[in-house]
Measured scan of single mutants.
Amino acid sequence: MVQRGSKVRILRPESYWFQDVGTVASVDQSGIKYPVIVRFEKVNYSGINTNNFAEDELVEVEA
């Protein structure tokens, strides 16, 4: 279970941040499909630095 402030590695192959490390900004408990919002240092092609992920697409590298 990841929690706010954890450092996580992204396992979603189609993601711009695949294999990159980001910080968990928040975790939604309402039961949505992609409840974990992760914030990154670098921006993607659209200038965005956050994205939603499912918990099984993340691996915690640092608490």
Rank of each mutant, 00 (worst) to 15 (best):
R9P: 01
D56N: 12
L11A: 03
R12W: 07
A25P: 00
V21M: 04
A54T: 05
V8E: 00
R12C: 07
K7S: 06
I32R: 08
T23S: 04
I10K: 02
D20C: 14
T50I: 11
T23F: 08
D20V: 10
R9N: 03
Q29E: 10
P35D: 06
A63W: 12
F40A: 00
I32L: 10
D28L: 13
G22T: 03
V61P: 04
V2D: 04
E62C: 13
F53L: 01
V8P: 02
S15C: 09
R12T: 06
S15V: 04
E14W: 13
E55G: 06
E14Q: 10
V24E: 01
F40P: 00
F18C: 06
G47C: 10
F40R: 01
R9I: 08
A63V: 12
A54W: 05
N44L: 05
N44I: 04
V43A: 14
E60Y: 10
I37N: 11
V36L: 04
V24R: 00
V24M: 01
S26E: 13
D56Y: 14
Q29D: 12
K7D: 03
P13C: 11
E41F: 08
E14M: 08
D20P: 01
A54M: 08
A63Q: 12
K42G: 05
E57F: 02
D20K: 09
F40V: 00
Y45S: 15
P35I: 12
R4V: 15
E14Y: 12
Q19L: 14
S15Q: 03
S15W: 03
R4Q: 12
F53T: 03
K7A: 05
V8Y: 00
F40D: 00
Q19P: 02
D20M: 13
I10E: 00
G22N: 03
S26F: 14
V21T: 07
G5S: 02
V59A: 11
T23W: 09
P13L: 09
A54E: 06
F18H: 05
F53R: 00
I10V: 13
A63C: 13
W17G: 01
K33R: 13
V43N: 10
I32C: 12
W17S: 01
V21H: 04
S30A: 07
P35C: 14
A25T: 14
I37P: 00
G5V: 03
E60M: 14
V21W: 05
W17V: 01
G22V: 05
S46R: 11
E14H: 11
Y34A: 05
K33W: 05
Y45F: 13
K42A: 06
Q29T: 14
S46F: 14
N49Y: 10
V43D: 08
N49W: 08
G31Y: 09
T50H: 10
L11K: 04
N44E: 04
N52V: 06
A54P: 00
T50G: 02
F53C: 05
S26D: 14
V36D: 00
E55R: 13
Y16R: 02
G22E: 03
G22F: 07
E14T: 14
A54Q: 06
G31Q: 11
D56M: 06
N52Y: 09
E55C: 14
D20Y: 10
R4H: 06
K33G: 07
Y16D: 05
S6T: 12
V43R: 13
S26L: 09
E41A: 10
Y45K: 15
I10G: 01
